[in-house]
Simulated assay, not measured.
Amino acid sequence: MKKISGLGIAAIIAGLLVIYGIYWYNSTIGTNEGVTSSWANVETTYQRRNDLIPNIVATAKKYAEFEQETLIGVIEARSNATSIKVDASKLTAENIAAYSKAQSAVSTGLGRLLATYENYPDLKANENFKELINELSRSENRISVARTRYNDAVKVYNVKIKRFPGNLMAGVFGFDEAAFYKADEGAEKAPDVDNLLGNN
């Protein structure tokens, strides 16, 4: 039986390292795509909520005595939130914090609107408005699920690029850490639509 020379052993080890490197790279691309896809879902669920706002405001506006300042606040917050986009290749803590802050302002404005509309029995009885508010509640639930799934995907990806020897290869291949979605303090609780509608 032939002995394998030192050069042969080195070639085998090098070959195994190349195979492992290819496997690691491809699987990391997959986990990175999981983060990108999850982020797209976060943006989609927020956009779905933001798309409801014009109809909610238009319905409330029909009641002339409804607080205009509240409506204007919601419209302005929505406008600001829809203007902020985060490139999925730049999911940094700063970019996500700016996005989160804008979306939290929308949540705050909607919370004020929902608290105020309690004072208007005719608006509260409006079937179209009720359905819009129910849809808003469903959107808030979807947002919560999407953010959780995004953070789960980020955890899997970040562990992969931080754990040895992945941490060495991440630098070589340009894989950067993705930031978790951290809601502004107090923003983790969606407006309590169910209580306002008496669905509890």
Results as ranks from 00 to 15, higher is better:
A58C: 00
E131A: 13
W39N: 11
L123D: 11
V145C: 06
I56N: 04
I4P: 07
P54V: 03
T116D: 05
V145H: 05
E118I: 06
Q68G: 02
G171E: 08
N199S: 12
Y120A: 08
A190R: 00
A183C: 06
R142D: 09
A60K: 04
S144W: 01
Y150V: 11
W39Q: 11
G73L: 03
N195D: 09
A125W: 02
Q47S: 15
V156D: 15
N80S: 15
Y157V: 13
P121S: 14
T82G: 05
E127F: 01
L17Y: 00
T82R: 02
R112L: 05
N141T: 01
R142C: 00
T31K: 12
A102W: 06
L196W: 03
A64H: 04
G174I: 08
E140S: 06
M169E: 00
G6D: 08
D87V: 05
V42C: 05
M169V: 13
P165V: 10
T31E: 10
E185C: 09
N141D: 04
P165M: 10
L196E: 10
G111W: 00
K2M: 05
G15W: 10
S89N: 13
I56W: 07
N26I: 13
K182S: 13
I96G: 06
G166W: 08
S37A: 13
N199V: 15
I143D: 01
A102Q: 10
F173D: 07
R163E: 15
L7S: 15
D51R: 05
V159C: 01
A125S: 15
